[in-house]
Design a protein around this nucleic acid. Structure first.
Lengths: 219, 219
DNA sequence: CATGCTTGGATAGTGCCACTCTCCAAAGAA
DNA sequence: TTCTTTGGAGAGTGGCACTATCCAAGCATG
């Protein structure tokens, strides 16, 4: 299959595919001649994954490249490739945790939370992880606005996250090969995020309607 | 307090405050003279909220303006202002639900899910909501990539979302005034999202470490 | 009162990012 | 042979969140 067909099958314009090739998000096709290249089903699949990461997951192109590079880095063993690939998936710039008192207090709250949850693996490594820093920044921000955000409020969220992680990892371990597992980890980490957030918003609407309209449907 | 002090107290540059004023994210201060304006504590608070929405919540400036306008629209009653404000908080463009078979199947799955959860309020109104459409797009994308994403997989997420909604609404109802409740709804909806996602990622790391390293800490 | 600094407001510019357009020479198709 | 298509490369585009510059009108200080 050549560029035009790859474009048709994936729903991505040829210009964008060329851009992704240049950016290293997609492996070059097998060169047929000086001006032609051959692409396969794996390119279609990869392209769909990249598109999902970028469009739905809002992952920056540069980040997507790192993630893919980590997933393909054969110098690491399976476990580390998995960690490296998901590590790169930071949400975005974490607003440079300024060292005001609110941020410190937030960090203490988060540490207490992790201890409560018995997430011992994250006590050392985790403090550097993007997820940890994002969490601290968010808690600090909520605090600054005067909203309650202590261990008591966070704990239910943490327990739910732990439950989700178990079923997510179960799904990942169903994949047959290590490569497929890593791809699944990336895809499920990123693509279930909009699912989770959307469901939360729908649940808010539902619960709000229940409370404020006494069970009646709004007009 | 004048612009410079407002900037200092909120940690936002004067240039950015002027930009927000121009964009209508912040009410103009009380004019003291032709070249001076007076700001109050509510401006500091509003500014912090706006910053949190934009930086942490990644809400586009234009969207933040709509949300604030809806929250202040006194022509609507409390319940509707709340709905309008959170309605505007779409995550971003929902990738224009193309009408391929995957999208249709995804919509059927989502409808079945909502029925299972007994979220009857969303059956009509909800199909137009940004959250519903984001959810369908995400499910369709997961399906296209071949990952299991049926009612069975989504149901636990939905139940957890319902639980979270209950505690979130409890928090909101603790606020004393309608205006404070609406602000709380916006702030908690947006700012708990990074909390939830970060916790999920940390939980993934923790669960993954437990499974792959047999309980040992990685180096 | 003179002088210099600060203030709020308006306009134009910057940097980043995800594409997208234009051009080109070599290949294949008719 | 002629016409279209292909892959590749570089420059250009549009959107967005600021940010830098300028300006005239205060205000503060000697």
């Amino acid at each position: 299959m050549r560029l035009a067909e790859l474009s048709e099958r994936s729903g991505v314009s040829t210009a964008t595919i060329k851009y992704y090739l240049r950016e290293g998000l997609l492996q070059p096709g097998r060169r047929i001649s000086a001006t032609q290249a051959e692409y396969g089903d794996e390119h279609v699949r990869r392209l769909r994954l990249v598109r999902a990461l970028i469009q739905l997951g809002k992952v920056p192109v540069a980040t997507a490249r790192e993630v893919i590079a980590a997933a393909e880095d054969t110098s690491l063993d399976h476990h580390w490739r998995l960690g490296a690939a998901t590590w790169a998936l930071a949400h975005g710039r974490e607003a440079a945790t300024d060292d005001d008192p609110a941020a410190e207090a937030a960090a203490r709250t988060v540490n207490a939370l992790l201890e409560h949850l018995d997430w011992r693996h994250d006590q050392e490594l985790g403090e550097l992880s993007p997820a940890y820093r994002t969490l601290v920044a968010a808690v600090a921000s909520l605090r600054r606005l005067g909203y309650p955000c202590g261990v008591a409020q966070l704990l239910p969220y943490g327990r739910l996250a732990a439950q989700l992680a178990v079923s997510d990892l179960d799904l990942i371990e169903e994949e047959p090969t290590p490569a497929a597992q890593i791809e699944a980890a990336v895809a499920l980490t990123v693509l279930y995020e909009p699912v989770l957030l959307s469901l939360r918003r729908l649940a808010h609407a539902e619960e709000s309607a229940r409370r404020f309209t006494g069970g009646e449907k709004p007009a």
